[in-house]
Computed example of a mutant assay.
Amino acid sequence: MSSTEPPELRAAPSSVAPPDNLQSQKGETLRTVRLAGLTLAVRGRAVRRPDLPPALYVHGLGGSSQNWSALMGQLSDTVDGEALDLPGFGHSPPPDDGDYSVSGHARAVIRQLEAAGRGKVHLLGNSMGGAVATRVAAVRPDLVRTLTLVSPALPELRPQRTAMPTALLALPGVTALFGKLTRDWTAERRTREVLTLCYGDPARVTAEGFAAAVAEYERRLELPYFWDSLSRSARGIVNAYTLNGQHSLWRQAERVLAPTLLVYGGRDLLVSFRMARRASAAFRDSRLLTLPEAGHVAMMEYPEVVAGAFRELLMDTERTPEILKGS
Score class of each variant (00 low, 15 high):
V144T: 03
F178Y: 15
G173D: 09
L243G: 04
L261V: 01
R161I: 10
S231E: 00
P155Q: 02
V144W: 04
T191A: 01
R220T: 01
A215R: 06
A133R: 05
F178P: 00
Y199A: 01
P224Y: 13
P141W: 11
A187R: 02
T242E: 14
S248E: 06
T260I: 13
A253M: 03
L147A: 06
R251M: 11
S151P: 09
G209H: 01
L149S: 01
L154Q: 08
L221H: 13
D184A: 14
Y199L: 02
R204Y: 00
L169A: 08
E208T: 02
S151T: 08
L154A: 09
R251P: 06
S231D: 03
L143I: 04
V214M: 00
V238Y: 08
L154I: 02
R161T: 12
E222N: 14
P152A: 15
G179Y: 01
G200A: 03
A253P: 04
V256Q: 07
G200I: 07
W227R: 13
Y241F: 14
D228F: 10
R189M: 01
G245S: 09
E188M: 02
R158T: 13
L257E: 14
P155T: 03
P259I: 04
S231P: 04
R135G: 08
F178V: 12
G245C: 11
L223Q: 15
Y241N: 09
R183I: 08
A212T: 09
D142N: 08
V132N: 14
L230A: 13
A215M: 01
P165A: 09
L249G: 09
P202W: 08
A240C: 11
T196P: 06
L243C: 11
Y199Q: 03
T191N: 09
V174E: 05
L261C: 02
P159G: 09
A212K: 05
T182K: 07
L169Y: 07
R135C: 07
A203I: 00
L168S: 12
R135N: 04
P165S: 05
L243F: 05
E222W: 09
V132T: 15
A207W: 04
F210Y: 13
G209D: 01
L154E: 02
A187I: 00
R220L: 06
V132D: 10
E222S: 15
Y217L: 14
V144Q: 00
L181C: 10
A131P: 00
T182R: 14
L262C: 08
W185Q: 08
K180H: 07
H247W: 11
L177R: 05
V194W: 03
L181P: 01
E193P: 02
D142V: 06
A212E: 15
P224Q: 06
L157C: 07
L230I: 09
R255P: 00
A207E: 13
L147S: 03
L143V: 05
A163H: 03
